[in-house]
């Protein structure tokens, strides 16, 4: 795994860890909105590809949030 995806995974998991205190749908939305509002499209695309590959090590909320963002796109 390259350094850049490791860093994105860590950041995404941190975001999900904050929102996991909320009911699941809110947590998914919160995570998705945060990534949408603060990440560049290249960072989102990189994480998207990682989710599509296998998504190992990602918080489940991140996986769902990325799916959410893809649907909205």
């Amino acid at each position: 795994m390259s350094d850049d995806i490791e860093e994105l995974i860590r950041m995404a998991n941190q975001i999900a860890t904050f929102f996991q205190a909320y009911p699941e749908e809110e947590a998914v939305n919160g995570t998705a909105e945060h990534i949408r509002d603060f990440w560049t499209s290249a960072m989102r695309a990189r994480l998207d590809r990682y989710v599509a590959d296998n998504g190992t090590g990602l918080h489940p909320l991140v996986t769902r949030a990325m799916g959410h963002l893809q649907q909205a796109a």
């Binding site: 390259s2 350094d3 603060f38």
Partner: peptide, 18 residues
């Protein structure tokens, strides 16, 4: 309309060549 890079993201992107 797209958010840009934060400083730490700039460093990471510099190291990946973009």
């Amino acid at each position: 309309p797209e958010p840009g890079l934060r400083i730490p993201n700039m460093f990471a992107a510099a190291l990946d060549g973009s």
